[in-house]
């Protein structure tokens, strides 16, 4: 099925979902965080969709993104984009879940539905600071466990020291760059 047909089939089950399109022709289905588990279950189990594979799970910091779709949110936002693929039908789709950028940022884990999500979620927990309740092992994946902050956030400041080490070296300015 084409992406539009898939989405209209999904609307039959969840009539209040919306989509976001951009100049690149990318179509993202916007799903509220609290309904992700329901929607993901439908996409996995329903014969029409049969999305058996989670290809990619990316974190996003929307706080510097021009004219980001905000929905009912105010303030700065984080997002997760789920790229799905069905080996049975050969079709693809992408889901976007938007959460506020603060300490409470949390998205239910889809690990019980797509097992590979466990590692993707740990990476996002580490680098973006989104919690995934339901993940079987919610620890940092890339950074040391006592690291402070979430490096992939746009407002992340490179730390001056870690543990007993001085990290900033002579003549290097880690805070430069377009989003510093």
């Amino acid at each position: 099925m084409k992406n539009a047909d898939l989405f209209s089939a999904l609307l039959e089950v969840y009539p209040d979902l919306s989509t976001e399109t951009s100049e690149t022709g990318e179509i993202l289905w916007i799903v509220p965080a609290e309904r992700l588990t329901d929607v993901a279950c439908t996409l996995r189990e329903d014969e029409r969709f049969a999305f058996d594979s989670l290809m990619c799970l990316s974190g996003l910091d929307l706080s510097k993104y021009p004219a980001a779709v905000k929905g009912e949110f105010v303030g700065e936002l984080l997002a997760c984009v789920y790229h799905l693929h069905s080996f049975e039908h050969g079709h693809e789709a992408a889901i976007k879940v938007i959460v506020p950028k603060d300490e409470t940022a949390s998205i239910p884990s889809v690990e019980p539905i797509w097992a590979v999500a466990g590692y993707f979620e740990r990476e996002i927990l580490d680098l973006y600071g989104i919690a995934f309740p339901g993940n079987h092992d919610p620890r940092r994946l890339m950074m040391p466990e006592d690291w402070v902050g979430h490096p992939m956030r746009k407002d992340y400041q490179y730390p001056q020291n870690y543990s007993t080490w001085e990290l900033k070296r002579e003549g290097q300015n880690f805070t430069s760059g377009p989003y510093a």
Partner: peptide
């Protein structure tokens, strides 16, 4: 162009996907 795009390519170690925004 503004927006995201997910591209996948078959590499020796399998699918390499770039999600470019």
């Amino acid at each position: 162009p503004k927006g995201g795009l997910y591209t996948r390519v078959e590499n020796p170690r399998g699918e390499t996907g770039y999600y470019l925004v």
